[in-house]
């Protein structure tokens, strides 16, 4: 039986602790910015992830263009393929896909790394040496996430659009120039803001959730496994929640313009 009072208290506690950690991390970023650690984290987080983001977007782009052309062909609307593919890639698919793939890689990596450190007393050792783990470990990772996710996501967008071109040319027989002019009309301000704001937020989500559950790990190797699973699942869910909320917010700001 779940006690509703205890359950609510648990959730509130989590929200509070998470918020405190995040605020501390941002304060450390302002007070003394760690250049070396941040660059190192960006390298670890971003560069190694390029191949998987590449592959994920390639195949998702291929598939999406294929499905769209099947739907649009009967209406003779395949000349719009470029615009439709680019719009959905930039606004939604690119950021979400990159972030979900990254949460499997990055969130899991961060949680198990910090979880391992917590269970082997390395986090305590940091504290004992007068260093706040949020300062040394969490802040550079969060920053790296917020910088690298947009970058990866743009790379992914580009590949998704390119995959769409392949389908357009060889599947739907849309000439390349027509496809490209469609793509160009999709590069509007609302779309671009959408495409950058989302991965920025998602990067924050997937790293900070990983850090939070990593630092709070107890109970040895089994505990590390438990935290990791939890972090990856929550990160994925919150990415999708945030995706909807940001879409809604930006549509409210700009109206139904594309």
């Amino acid at each position: 039986m779940i006690d509703p009072l205890q359950f609510t208290r648990g959730i509130l506690g989590t929200v509070q602790n998470f918020t405190l950690m995040v605020f501390r991390a941002f304060r450390y970023m302002m007070v003394h910015f760690r250049v070396r650690e941040s660059l190192l984290e960006m390298d670890r987080l971003g560069v190694g992830s390029i191949p998987i983001v590449f592959l994920a977007n390639l195949f998702a782009g291929l598939d999406m263009a294929l499905q769209f052309s099947v739907v649009m062909a009967p209406y003779g609307a395949t000349n719009l393929l470029g615009k439709v593919v680019a719009t959905s890639v930039i606004r939604d698919m690119g950021p979400v896909l990159a972030s979900l793939v990254m949460s499997a890689r990055v969130t899991a990596g961060i949680t198990s790394e910090l979880g391992m450190m917590a269970t082997t007393q390395q986090i305590e050792a940091l504290l004992v040496m007068g260093v706040d783990p949020v300062d040394r470990l969490v802040a550079p990772k969060i920053l790296a996430g917020m910088v690298m996710l947009p970058v990866l996501s743009v790379v992914g967008d580009f590949l998704g659009v390119l995959a769409g071109l392949a389908v357009a040319m060889f599947g739907a027989h849309v000439p390349a120039p027509l496809y490209w002019s469609g793509v160009r009309t999709a590069l509007t301000l609302p779309n671009l803001v959408n495409g950058i704001a989302k991965p920025f937020v998602f990067g924050f989500i997937l790293v900070s959730i990983g850090c939070y559950y990593g630092l709070r790990t107890t109970g040895g190797a089994q505990g590390v496994g438990r935290s990791t699973t939890k972090a990856v699942v929550y990160a994925a869910i919150w990415i999708l929640v945030a995706n909807f909320l940001i879409s809604k917010l930006l549509i409210d700001v700009w109206g139904w313009k594309l």
């Binding site: 790394e113 450190m117 082997t120 007393q121 390395q122 050792a125």
Partner: peptide
């Protein structure tokens, strides 16, 4: 620390 707790990275 009991187990050393060296930073293993």
């Amino acid at each position: 620390f009991q187990e050393g707790a060296l930073f293993d990275s």
